[in-house]
Amino acid sequence: MTPVIELRNVTKAFGSGTARPNAVLEQINLSIEGHEFASIVGPSGCGKSTLLRIMMGLTTPTDGEVYYRGKPVKDVIEGMAMVFQTFALFPWLTVLQNIEIGLQGRKISDDAKRKRSLKLVEIMGLEGFEEAYPRELSGGMKQRVGLARALVSDPEVLLMDEPFSSLDPLTATHLREEVLDLWLNPEVSPGSVVMVTHNVEEAVYMADRIIVLTHRPGTIIKEVHIDLPRPRNPRSPELYRVVDEITGMIA
């Protein structure tokens, strides 16, 4: 089967063509399959976020090719949506309007956009907050809006860049659970999820496969398949064994 996303020999360097190009990613070969939850982990500065931006077509690689369903990527891909660490909501728009932004440019009627956005309001537990502005929301609620905006366009791939890092630990616990529920919910499920995180426990708790990057320039040192049955207990010894193994590779 053709992978959903495929990166072949992808290299990214800033200031290429100068005497001292600064390589961020080097020789990345990676495929994302349909129906998988993949996580990219590595120390800060290993190019994880750049890798995500390249997958989505937001940044072009210096060298190498990116394919989406077997076709070369030339522009931002419609079938993907991104969730950001800092939520990236528009402060002057309400919750409902922020979600509708996720449908901008889609050729559907305003009525259909409103209907689909309200569906996401319901699924994300945001009923009652439709008219609220981001400044009135807690971090957890803001990231719910971020998820709703990403999922409203029914993406095939959901990309998440450190989605829980700016939340307090209790809220992060809760939202991880919610994201796993969403992934299993046929009404909204993106086929695949790619999550970038520096938190190894979080990756092992959530993902089917972990791609481990080294420090700059980022290269893949290992891919680990996580076969632990779901639902997983984040505090089980089996889980910690895998966490220790992966942490050892990065440290």
Binding site: S138, M141, D168, L170, T171, R235
Partner: peptide, 15 residues
């Protein structure tokens, strides 16, 4: 709100 639900989920993990 999200914190409270998170706390309940942690409790559930600890049986």
């Amino acid at each position: 709100m999200s914190q409270m639900i998170g706390l309940l989920e942690v409790l559930e993990d600890f049986n």
